[in-house]
Amino acid sequence: MTRRAPLSLAARLAVAAAVVAVVLVLAYARSGSGIVVSQAVLTGLLLGGVYGLVAMGLTLIFGVLDIVNFAHGALMTVAMYGTVLLASHAGLDPYLTLLVTAPALFGIGMALQSGLINRTMGSSLANQLLLTLGIGLLIENVLLLSFGSEPRSVAVGYAAPLRAFGAVADLTRVIAFLGALGLAALLYLLLQRTRVGTAIRAVAANPDGAQLVGIDVRRMYVLTFALGTACAGAAGTLVAPFVTVEATTGELFNIIAFVVVVLGGMGNVVGALVGGLLIGLTEQLGGVLLPEQSPLLAVFVVFVLVLFLRPQGLFGRSS
């Protein structure tokens, strides 16, 4: 959410691009196959877009409310189940359910913030941390209770593999990527170009100053939490066709989104999107470089490196 001089942003993007280039060369040397690398890049970028959308919601909430939302992933799972139910029982197209899940999660976010979290604003960080963690656990277990532990899936009738540069990507992943990018752009325009978006950024920049110009800060908190939650919800619906939906599916996205948020600079919405793409690439290329390890290993190595070398994130401001 910070505005930077274009040169320094370009310089940082150049550094990021150089790192990506080195990793690509290493991956090529390790696998000896161009197709393996381009497949990893394609899969990584497509999934990275979704990571970006999840992380945008998380970083928006952090930037404005100063809350690390541990319920973000569980709320994403709620949307996945919403899509499962609406698609398999009501026979809706899975992507059409976005029109239900995103507004529904917006509403849930509003209720959570105004009913529970607003009461803890201004108190110690641990209070909010425990509260959101508790909400997350509660949601997961209610989902487990209602839907059982059996994994669910969403069928998309027109799913078909698409080819590019020797790599293959399922149509569902391409749609998820494009959808995430589109929603990310919408969110960005909302924050940058509208009055209410400017008010949200004003609250993030200086809550006292926001009150002094007559902004109802608590209402902005509710709106921001709802917007962030709607991002998680939209992402949940977008990934539902290619993940196995379980009560804990969102958790993995939540963990990755934390890494993305730190990488992109806490509270930086554009950084979250770029960070999402980078982490998507890291995960897939990490799988190529270290084939015997969990792909998350590379993600956490990057996480630790960022914390060591640039704790304010790639696009964050040093404080």
Binding site: M1, T2, R3, R195, T198, A199, R201, A202, A205, N206, D208, G209, A210, L212, V213, I215
Partner: peptide, 14 residues
Amino acid sequence: DLFGPLTVVENLEM
């Protein structure tokens, strides 16, 4: 208590 990262005109609009 200005909105530091926001532009001058955005501060005024707010």
